[in-house]
């Protein structure tokens, strides 16, 4: 807390009233040999209150630019999920941002993963660091939660990151039908021949290596479905009866779950991966949750997900994933809304 006070001093030099109070407290504690913290405790509350007030209203000094791969031709399921999650989080925080698609976003990113945001001189990549960065600027959605709730939220977030992300990676890079008919053409689409094969091969090696280390590589598709079902069950149970995971206001967990659920349900994959979509769809709580976030923050068609279901039903089982189809559903989410 004392750190925040110092911070405040530096930031708002023109607003001297609280500063003077703190200085008084400092002087008095020196004189009366009281404990420093106890003497200024009463002022700290005022300070942090004012700090939050001024900073929440304050326009962010630099615009946020959001970098991601091309949504239409290039992006893959795991990246799409992460991009949607970060977009949802930024929207929940009420921050304006500008989407900048780049074919080499993955290589530009300081951590090698997408998405990343540029805010002034700062470049922050991936969901967790972005959340931390934004909260360091004074905007946080989980501030009011109790310690146990925070710990719970962290646990569920790591569940999503460890299970859903791996499932998505598995589907994209290990499942042969998806790999050959969707992942490779999409991932290599921005590079000329023969470079696309080199890049796909590199990425495939990288992902399979990671999945092998985590013990996911040797799983069968059925085991993957089982994992997905367990994860979704846990999330749905947590959500039971509430509109958001921690009550009436969204937190970062909501953004993350929204990103994954929406990415999975709104892409049309091959029959072999239809299973995963159907599993997610079998949890109405999650769909409702995603729909709510969609409505509230992305201002788009409330029936989108249900429409998607219809489209999916219309598609014959052996139809190959048609990227032009998926384009319609994905950009409609994002382009119309900003």
């Amino acid at each position: 807390m004392s750190f925040k006070v110092v911070n405040f001093n530096v930031r708002n030099k023109n607003e001297s009233s609280t500063q003077i109070q703190i200085l008084k407290a400092l002087f008095s504690c020196g004189r009366e040999k009281e404990d420093f913290l106890t003497s200024i405790k009463k002022y700290i509350y005022i300070c942090s209150e004012q700090y939050l007030k001024t900073h929440a209203q304050e326009q962010w000094p630099q615009p946020i630019i959001f970098y991601q791969p091309y949504e239409v031709e290039q992006i893959l399921l795991p990246d799409n999920a992460n991009c949607l999650a970060v977009q949802a989080y930024l929207k929940m925080c009420g921050l304006e941002f500008q989407i900048e698609p780049r074919s080499n976003a993955e290589y530009m990113s300081p951590s090698g993963r997408v998405p990343f945001i540029q805010c002034g001189a700062f470049l922050v990549a991936e969901f967790d660091p972005i959340v931390a960065f934004i909260s360091s600027k004074g905007t946080s959605l989980s501030e009011q939660l109790s310690q146990t709730d925070k710990a719970d939220m962290r646990a569920y977030m790591s569940l999503v990151n460890n299970v859903l992300v791996n499932i998505e990676q598995y589907i994209c890079w290990v499942d042969q039908t998806t790999l050959n008919s969707a992942t490779k053409p999409r991932h290599g689409s921005v590079y000329p021949w023969p470079l696309n094969h080199v890049i796909n091969w590199q990425k495939q090696n990288q992902v399979t290596k990671r999945l092998k280390v985590l013990g996911w590589y040797n799983k069968t598709l059925d085991e993957i479905y089982k994992e997905a079902e367990n994860c979704c069950t846990a999330l749905a149970e947590r959500l039971e009866g509430k509109s958001f995971f921690s009550g009436e206001e969204p937190t970062e967990l909501d953004a993350l779950v929204y990103g994954h659920v929406h990415a999975i349900t709104s892409t049309h994959f091959l029959p072999s991966t239809r299973g995963i979509i159907n599993i997610v769809r079998s949890f109405p709580q999650l769909l409702e949750h995603a729909r709510l976030i969609n409505n509230r923050y992305f201002n788009c068609n409330p029936n989108l997900i249900i429409e998607d279901l219809d489209i999916l039903k219309c598609m014959s089982d052996d139809s190959i994933w048609n990227s032009s189809r998926s384009l319609e559903s994905l950009p409609s989410l994002t382009e119309d809304s900003f």
């Binding site: 780049r102 074919s103 080499n104 290589y107 540029q118 470049l123 590079y191 023969p194 470079l195 080199v198």
Partner: peptide
């Protein structure tokens, strides 16, 4: 020639934009 540009940590954004493979 298959080239790959990797940017360092503290690098101008104009250089970072150039990262990635090219042929």
């Amino acid at each position: 020639n298959y080239r790959e540009v990797t940017a360092g940590k503290q690098v101008s954004f104009r250089v970072r934009e150039q990262c990635g493979p090219s042929l």
